[in-house]
C-alpha cells in the first residue's frame, strides 16, 4: 500500500462531515500569559496536581506554553509557543491504539474515548508533540473545588490517557444548535475555552471547509507553518510566524 506523504489519505475520514475544525495560532500576538491554560483547566475538568506531582512530571496540561530564550542577559528575548494536541489528519497516535480508544472523528478531530482506554500508553509514546497526558492516579479536587466541575465534560479516572479535544462539548452544542435551525455553523459561533479567553486573540478557531472563515483565510498566510511538518502528520493547528522586529 503506497502512501503519498504530501496529501492526507489512508484512514482520513473528513469527507463524511461538512466540517473540518482548524485552529490558527498567531505567534506574533501571543504574550505567553497562560490565560488559555487556566481556561482549559476550568472548562475541561483537568485534574489539579500539587507541587509534588508537578515536580515528578505528572501535572496534566492540555495546552502548554513552551518558552524559548534567545540571546544573553541583559539582551535577552523570550519567545512563546502554545502547544496543544495538533489533531493530525495522519495522527501517529491512532493506528497504535490496540482498542480504538484513539479515534478520528468525521469532523477531523482526534478523539480519545476514555471509556475504551485501557492505558497501554502507546499513543503517548508515539505523539511527537507530547500532547498526550496520562492519569497516573485517580483525580482529586479539594472541597469546594469539586463543586465547580463542568457537567458537560467527563471526569477521567486513573489509568486513562487524555488530551485536548478542541472543546468537543462546545463543538457538539454549536452543531446541534445549527442543525435545529437547519443551517451550517457560523464562523466564530464555536469557540474553545482557550480561544475565548485569549486576551490578544492569538488563537483563532473555525471550520476549514468554509472558504470564508477566518481560519481558512489565515491558514493561507505566508507566515503559516506546522509543527514538525517533516513527520507528515498533517496537523489541524496552523501557526503563524512572528513578524520580524
Amino acid at each position: 500500500m503506497s502512501r503519498d506523504p504530501q496529501t492526507p489519505q489512508g484512514y482520513s475520514k473528513t469527507a463524511d462531515s461538512p466540517y473540518k475544525w482548524e485552529m490558527v495560532v498567531d505567534l506574533d500576538r501571543c504574550t505567553g500569559c497562560e490565560a488559555c491554560v487556566i481556561a482549559c483547566h476550568a472548562e475541561n475538568n483537568i485534574r489539579i496536581s500539587g507541587e509534588e506531582e508537578a515536580a515528578q512530571g505528572r501535572a496534566i496540561n492540555w495546552i502548554r506554553i513552551e518558552r524559548y530564550w534567545e540571546g544573553e542577559y541583559p539582551d535577552v528575548k523570550v519567545k512563546f509557543l502554545p502547544v496543544l494536541c495538533q489533531h493530525c489528519d495522519e495522527a501517529p497516535c491512532e493506528p497504535v491504539c490496540p482498542v480504538y480508544a484513539s479515534y478520528h472523528t468525521p469532523d477531523g478531530l482526534n478523539a480519545q474515548v476514555y471509556n475504551r482506554c485501557i492505558g497501554v500508553r502507546y499513543c503517548g509514546n508515539n505523539c511527537p508533540y507530547v500532547a498526550r497526558q496520562f492519569n497516573w492516579f485517580d483525580p482529586h479536587w479539594d472541597e469546594p473545588l469539586a463543586e465547580q466541575l463542568n457537567p458537560d465534560v467527563s471526569v477521567r479516572s486513573g489509568g486513562v490517557m487524555e488530551k485536548c479535544t478542541f472543546c468537543v462539548q462546545r463543538i457538539r452544542t454549536g452543531k446541534e444548535n445549527a442543525a435545529k435551525e437547519g443551517r451550517r455553523v457560523k464562523d466564530g459561533e464555536i469557540t474553545p475555552a482557550c480561544v475565548q479567553s485569549c486576551p490578544t486573540s492569538a488563537l483563532i478557531f473555525g471550520d476549514r471547509n468554509d472558504p470564508k472563515s477566518r481560519v481558512a483565510r489565515l491558514k493561507k498566510s505566508e507566515r503559516g507553518f506546522h509543527l514538525l511538518e517533516h513527520l507528515g502528520t498533517h496537523p489541524s493547528v496552523t501557526y503563524l510566524r512572528r513578524l520580524a522586529e
Partner: peptide, 9 residues
C-alpha cells in the same frame, strides 16, 4: 494507581 511504577510524562 499505575503511578506507583514511578513512571512519568
Amino acid at each position: 494507581g499505575i503511578g506507583q511504577t514511578d513512571l512519568h510524562h
